Simulated assay, not measured.
Amino acid sequence: MTEPPAAAGRRERKKAATRQAIAAAALRLFLEHGYDHVSIRGIAEAADVSTATVFKHFTGKEALVFDQEESMDTRLIAAVRQRAPGEDVLDALRRHVLDTWLPIAAHPQWQEFNHLVTATPALRAYAERMWARHTDTLSAAIADEFGAEHDDLACTALARFVLEVPVLAQGRKDHRAAVEEVFDIIANGWRPPSGPTGPRST
């Protein structure tokens, strides 16, 4: 039976709200008690859902930490394919990073979240696998725009550099300026920094 659009919309909103509530409860428990000391059952109880509901929305504990990861590939592809008329790929990716990462970096729990990931081996490993998947996705999207093979080295390198921008910028005081600087390096090539005494002679 075909479901009316309004009912379908309510169902999707309810599903999204449940997923968000589970992820929020999980992050709160992880930050309070440490990732390894929190169980799926404890997360389910905190979110007032069953453990089956948790697994219906998430594949495991790691996925609860990276709850936005599922849609990241879609957003990366859209940044390349749905860019403004006349906008080149690199400028579109610069705008995408500024629009999506800066609000995350400004979140009051960002530092705690980042420490949780870096201090937990299972989460670090998951993040590395996730980063590799996103690199493949973004590289393929870039290659498609230029009619290149998906294993084209230039497209793969650009994808890696772009995904690394937040990592390079996160320790800087001015996140926006750091993102802009790294993208300028990608666009224009690296130049030696000009120190107070100039380059050392060899």
Rank of each mutant, 00 (worst) to 15 (best):
Q170N: 11
A7R: 14
A8I: 01
A125L: 09
R129S: 09
A8W: 02
F161G: 00
K61Y: 10
F58W: 06
S201G: 12
L168P: 15
P85K: 13
A132R: 15
G86K: 10
Y126W: 14
T202L: 06
R83Q: 06
K173V: 15
G147F: 15
P5F: 02
R133Y: 08
F113S: 06
W101K: 03
W101P: 00
R94K: 06
E181R: 10
V65D: 03
D91K: 07
A63L: 09
L163H: 02
P85W: 13
A154M: 13
D36R: 15
V65F: 14
T137P: 00
I142Q: 03
E45M: 12
A154T: 14
D99F: 01
Q20G: 11
V165D: 01
S39W: 12
D174S: 08
R172T: 07
W101R: 03
A8P: 05
T135A: 08
G171I: 05
H150W: 09
T2M: 11
A23P: 00
V80A: 04
L138G: 01
V117H: 05
A106F: 00
P166R: 08
V97K: 00
K56Q: 10
L168E: 14
R191A: 09
A44M: 07
E45D: 12
L93W: 12
K56M: 05
F113L: 15
A177M: 06
G42F: 01
R172W: 02
R83H: 07
F113N: 09
G34H: 01
R124N: 05
H150D: 12
E12W: 05
K173E: 14
L27K: 04
T53R: 10
P192Q: 00
W110E: 06
R83F: 11
A79F: 11
L123G: 06
T51P: 00
E69G: 09
A63S: 14
A140T: 08
L93I: 05
V89A: 07
A44E: 03
P193K: 14
T118W: 13
F113P: 02
I185R: 04
A187F: 12
R94I: 01
T53D: 04
Q111E: 10
D152S: 08
S50I: 08
V80R: 01
H107M: 12
V97G: 00
R41V: 07
G34Y: 05
A44D: 01
E70Q: 12
L158D: 14
T2I: 10
A169M: 04
T135E: 12
